[in-house]
Simulated assay, not measured.
Amino acid sequence: MAIVLGPNRYGKAETRVVRVVRDGGTHHIKDINVSSALSGDMEDVHLTGDNGNVLPTDTQKNTAYAFAKKYGVDQIEDFALLLARHYVDSQAPIRHARVEIEEYFWDRIPVSDGPHLGLREEQYSFVRSGREVRTCVVHYDQDEGATIVSGLKNLVVLNSTGSEFHGYVEDEFTTLKPTNDRILATEVSAQWRHRGEHGSFGRSYNEARQSLLEAFAETHSLSLQQTLYQMGRRVLNTRKEVCEVRMVMPNKHHFLVDLEPFGMDNPNEVFFAADRPYGLIEGSVLTDDAPAAGFAWN
């Protein structure tokens, strides 16, 4: 029996980069978390400890900082692609680079110059936004080119009605009662794969996000799976540069509280929000002409 080295990669995880652009007294913030992973001719470092083909992970960290200064950070997909190409094109042993970025949002704090004086002209105070986290994963391969996946996570949504659940399989262990009116809540993690490098990732993200929200709100749901499909379908119909959407949607259960012991009715007004266990719904929606991904999304 022979023992051989399998697939491998290495890199620097979670390099926090905050880039401040000063436009006079008005400042702009990009707050991102960068993770890079490289693979290629790495047999020697594993088998003999020879580091001759290894670009240190510390160098990858420094590259993220230096590129943020040199090129700025606009759309995270563009910045990830810039880094990934740099690693592959500048280092012959490196054949493949994966760069993942998370972006955290900040809102401006309106600050007055004083009573009745209005808002000050300078804008440099921020509060961390309660919005979702924007994400992207970019793969750049010496032979296969680039694959760009945008996305979001921690997008919490809820419909207080317009959701049903019935007609499911029942066996000797089933205690769940059918319902024609329930709260439907979930925390959406979604990723969508682009057909190429179209260069309008900001608009694409905003419209894909809006499509997810609109489809969730407008779908009279008979199951969370049905809602997932309609959300993915809406993104594909809205953004033609997207060929596949993958989603993870935990069912954030809300159980009606029994108030009869207190002599009270509860017509779908008071609920207990349970955090676990929870149903976990996952799925992908894609066009029938979607090109093969070339490699795993993750």
Results as ranks from 00 to 15, higher is better:
139 H>K: 03
140 Y>L: 01
140 Y>R: 04
141 D>P: 00
142 Q>H: 13
142 Q>G: 05
144 E>P: 03
147 T>K: 13
148 I>P: 08
148 I>Y: 13
148 I>W: 12
150 S>W: 06
154 N>H: 14
158 L>T: 12
158 L>K: 06
160 S>F: 01
163 S>V: 14
163 S>P: 10
164 E>I: 08
164 E>M: 15
164 E>S: 15
164 E>P: 03
164 E>N: 13
166 H>R: 15
168 Y>R: 03
168 Y>G: 03
169 V>K: 14
170 E>G: 04
170 E>H: 13
170 E>T: 15
173 F>K: 11
174 T>A: 11
176 L>H: 04
176 L>P: 02
176 L>F: 07
177 K>N: 09
179 T>E: 11
179 T>Y: 15
181 D>V: 04
181 D>T: 09
183 I>F: 05
184 L>P: 08
184 L>V: 09
186 T>W: 08
186 T>M: 10
187 E>Y: 09
188 V>Q: 10
188 V>L: 15
188 V>N: 03
189 S>G: 10
190 A>E: 09
193 R>N: 07
193 R>F: 10
193 R>K: 12
194 H>W: 10
194 H>R: 11
195 R>Y: 05
196 G>I: 13
197 E>K: 12
198 H>R: 12
198 H>W: 10
200 S>W: 06
208 A>D: 03
208 A>R: 13
208 A>L: 07
211 S>H: 00
212 L>T: 00
213 L>W: 00
213 L>F: 00
213 L>A: 00
215 A>G: 00
216 F>Q: 01
216 F>Y: 07
216 F>S: 00
218 E>Y: 02
219 T>C: 06
221 S>K: 11
222 L>T: 09
222 L>S: 11
222 L>F: 14
223 S>L: 04
224 L>R: 08
226 Q>S: 01
226 Q>G: 08
226 Q>F: 05
226 Q>V: 11
226 Q>M: 11
228 L>H: 01
228 L>Y: 02
231 M>A: 04
232 G>T: 07
232 G>E: 07
232 G>N: 01
234 R>M: 09
234 R>K: 07
236 L>Q: 03
239 R>I: 02
243 C>T: 14
244 E>Y: 02
